[in-house]
Design a protein around this nucleic acid. Sequence first.
DNA 1: TAGATTGTTAATCGATTAACAATC
DNA 2: TAGATTGTTAATCGATTAACAATC
Lengths: 230, 230
Amino acid sequence: MPDRPRRIPEATVARLPLYYRALVEMAEQRIPTVSSERLAEMAGVNAAKVRKDLSYLGSYGTRGVGYDVEVLIDQIERILGLTRRHSVAVVGIGNLGHALANYGGFASRGFRVVALLDAGEVVGEKVAGLTVDSVDDLENVVKEQEVSIAVIATPGGAAQPLCDRLVAAGITSILNFAPVVLQVPEGVEVRKVDLSTELQILAFHEQRKSAGVLGVDADAVAQAFVEAAR
Amino acid sequence: MPDRPRRIPEATVARLPLYYRALVEMAEQRIPTVSSERLAEMAGVNAAKVRKDLSYLGSYGTRGVGYDVEVLIDQIERILGLTRRHSVAVVGIGNLGHALANYGGFASRGFRVVALLDAGEVVGEKVAGLTVDSVDDLENVVKEQEVSIAVIATPGGAAQPLCDRLVAAGITSILNFAPVVLQVPEGVEVRKVDLSTELQILAFHEQRKSAGVLGVDADAVAQAFVEAAR
DNA sequence: TAGATTGTTAATCGATTAACAATC
DNA sequence: TAGATTGTTAATCGATTAACAATC
């Protein structure tokens, strides 16, 4: 058995899924080995980073040759825990909840949506092959379906109370699409996907570009024009 | 005019939207000032970080008192470029595209969805008050509607060619929901929202928890049980 | 004045990167 | 052997955090 388990940096953990996707693609094309250079290109990072990241998994490359694609896939699956089945519940079956319930990439690789919950009229309807349960039954559903990951796709106002119930029901992994910062006790992992945050970050960079290289801001530019026009 | 424009760290830029949301909430409740302590609590970070982050905007706090909520809102809007109107085009009107087109939080604060594009049967239909255009007209739509941000919500396979067209059409800010790493020329900003990556990161931490504090892995635990049972 | 809270410094920590010896 | 490529070191960079003087 190769020696382990040296702590893996968060930044590395966040990149492993990218490598994994690229590797699975290569495996489908029957490509047997890959260099750090090539893998870096596919994942959009640099080669030194790839090698450093992969070194945390152990020594699975061959000098002068590269990495065995299948071996690397197995190792990343092991590290990320993709060999287990993860049961996912989506709470909040609005537009986004529908999208998530139907999202194919979800089902792949160990993740399975096993429950849909909502508080509105959609309860009882079939969505993506599942009957939508009432959020009133949350605790039962979590227990019976052995849910290990909850996805919150409700409006902002409902998210925190819902989160509290999920945590009370034993959930320790939450993917939050609601535009609120969830407060959770230690040991509960929350990942946040936030549309308007992403847009605002893009807006910042847009602004930077049009403001020019020197960091001149829009107001200053406008002012300069006014002065010049006089 | 307060002095500027010292470069703002990326990590800070990524947190400004969180502060902004919390501040807008406070403004709605007519709360005039806020301490770094309180703002930190709402944003889920620590107070030292809040003060450091806000110091990049300039000195807008008052010792012994805190920060003026309205002033801070104005400053963050200025820095993030939220005072301008940003026109957004959503490409790919499947389940997710529908969700994005209808997403209210989108519209708020400077962002407006002005165009929906697709390559399928949905072209010509009305979605969220807009008629879906054919992706064939992408270049025209970008020009006529002055689109500055594109959101890609297509299947993975369509994303890169689409991205190339968007870039050729002059788009420099892209929010990508497709599960691929987009290759773009320098100067084009891509933010990625990736469901399966987020789930995999959660899975990693789930695994860590059940493996125990010492980093023992599941296989080793299973093995130990087998040994013990003999 | 006394209490509160900012803004900044400096120490620490974690992540990135280039470089290259090891080795296939 | 010669060429290729890993795995690791060490330098560098950027982000976090505690601490506290400044000051309202």
